[in-house]
Design a protein around this nucleic acid. Structure first.
Lengths: 317, 317
DNA sequence: CACGCCGATAACCGAATGGTTAGGACTTCT
DNA sequence: AGAAGTCCTAACCATTCGGTTATCGGCGTG
């Protein structure tokens, strides 16, 4: 009554090759075997998925949706065996979730330093997630540690957040910005955390009741700040991370009733007995002077071999 | 002889709950059923996956690797049905792959304009990918269109690249940068495309034989430029995208034997008969004046409801 | 128009999946 | 030590999955 990986594999191959017969040849089975695998999927999902199109097969819209998902599933299926086999004697893995602000400046150098400190005993990677996503990924063990706001919403989840670093949130704007009207009417330039209601940025936007029409979302903080420097509006920022732009005079601080404000980054893990070994290590590492130093000063980049592209948790479904 | 989704589902549940019995209760089946599902996985993968740990079960390293993958697979499995059902009468989907440079400034406003132009007939999303990834994702129909370098490596792949926009690559540095020695010895500040040998940045680094030790990778272009403005080194850039920083005098152009250079963005799709309808539409849209305008001027952000976080293709395995 | 190719369907079959109950080995708590 | 709980294994059974060969219907092409 449930889909099967072989069925999905057959479907993916047919969709890719545009032919049932060709797929059967590649798989080394008879053609009705493939045909029936697809028939089973059709019935289970209630969609034709693949329809005859002249010589070969074309995907319906539903089939196209399935295709992306099914491709991932079969790829993951083969990954699984490789991953488990490779795990024998391999370094333990640490998956760190970070809020987008942290991701941009801190996550990469932090993990780089962490990896250097433990010299191959840990294999660390980071992913960007919203607060809501962190709340579900951590208890489900899809990640080991989260770095961002306090996550102890409900004690039942078994999550423990501990303060790591206090910081100041300021509002910055270009040199020639003239404050006119209430802050809620200004143009706000934010990074993607502006769409996360539980983030600092989200709270700030809510605090000033900034209407959607006054918000421009940029793909990252630096781009938002560059736009602010160009006089397009105001942007929230962590004080230590914009110090260079402030020092050079590209940006200046704008005071409001809600800013400057102090906030705190927390490290969140499962409770101690359920906590994984890598999670324990990173949690300890965060309190070392090295880590403190990294978090206070803007990143200076990492060497290419160490670079890991950021990973976003949601994939196109 | 192959893993089953129900087996993986049982494994995930046991790992999450730390107990076979509890998982069996949740699933509403007898406890040996769950136990045997896990036994099958153990035998198939050659790893204990879950070992007794006092009262409950703890994951081995291999089990921990499997857990992330298996969780995704079962989640995707339930997504699949929802996605196919939702596809009835839903807008067609367009998945755009972009090089990281384009992703940062152009992809979001471009898709925003595209979506506005077609008013809900298309549902567009974008993902960042390296050139090598584009080459495999497009023929496999995991994406519809790619925007970036010329991809016609081998004609056999069925990919067609067409030029979209010429642009100038320049090298920028802070105001007080003093050229000393060969460009290969300078500190280079690049975004993640520096790790992609087929990108403009990668080619440039290779052209100057810049050693790894002289390269600092930043999470995005804007951050690399900010570092360059701070005097930390030189950074490659698309001329039209740094015009603001040049105009404000934060950055200046540094001439070398290889820069300024002209290059071109291409739109790549499958050959016309295999091309999807959304791919056709976007390809046409790219030649409109609106799109040209967008690609020439740096983005100004989008409104929150339109914002889609960028999607990276690689997931943690 | 007929031929050939392709895909769907039918009938059949072996194997293993997924479920049950019964019982043994081990840890933990009283 | 004994009781209770948990996990593994064994034996058994229904289902269906995945494979085969044979046949039918539709579509381009000669």
């Amino acid at each position: 009554m449930t889909m099967t990986l072989t069925q999905l594999g057959a479907f993916v191959l047919v969709a890719r090759l545009g032919s049932v017969r060709a797929a059967a040849d590649v798989l080394g089975v008879s053609e009705p075997a493939v045909s029936r695998a697809i028939a089973a999927l059709r019935q289970h999902l209630g969609d034709q998925l693949l329809v005859r199109d002249g010589n070969g097969m074309a995907m319906t819209e539903g089939g196209s949706r399935l295709f992306g998902i099914a491709s991932q599933m079969v790829a993951l299926g083969s990954d699984a065996e490789a991953a488990v086999r490779a795990a024998k004697g391999a370094p333990a893995r640490l998956r760190l979730l970070v809020a987008s602000t942290i991701a941009e400046f801190i996550a990469t150098p932090l993990l780089e330093a962490f990896g250097r400190r433990w010299q191959g005993t840990f294999d660390a990677s980071s992913g960007v997630a919203s607060v809501a996503e962190m709340r579900v990924l951590l208890p489900n063990r899809l990640a080991d540690v989260a770095l961002g706001p306090d996550l102890r919403g409900d004690a039942s989840s078994g999550l423990i957040s501990e303060p790591v670093l206090k910081y100041r949130i300021v509002l910055v704007a270009g040199r020639d910005f003239r404050a006119a009207g209430a802050p809620g009417r200004w143009p706000w330039l934010v990074d993607s955390s502006g769409t996360d209601p539980d983030s600092d940025t989200g709270r700030l936007l809510r605090g000033f009741r900034v209407p959607e029409s006054s918000i421009r979302v940029f793909p990252n903080q630096t781009a938002a700040w560059a736009a602010a420097a160009d006089g397009l509006g105001v942007a929230p920022a962590v004080a230590t991370l914009v110090s260079r732009q402030l020092r050079r005079g590209e940006l200046r601080v704008v005071d409001t009733e809600l800013t400057p404000a102090t906030a705190c980054w927390y490290v969140t893990t499962l409770n101690p007995e359920r906590r994984s070994a890598p999670a324990r290590s990173l949690r300890n590492f965060l309190s070392t002077p090295d880590a403190m130093q990294l978090m206070c000063s803007p990143g200076t980049g990492v060497s290419p071999s160490r670079f890991r592209p950021p990973v976003y948790v949601t994939i196109w479904s």
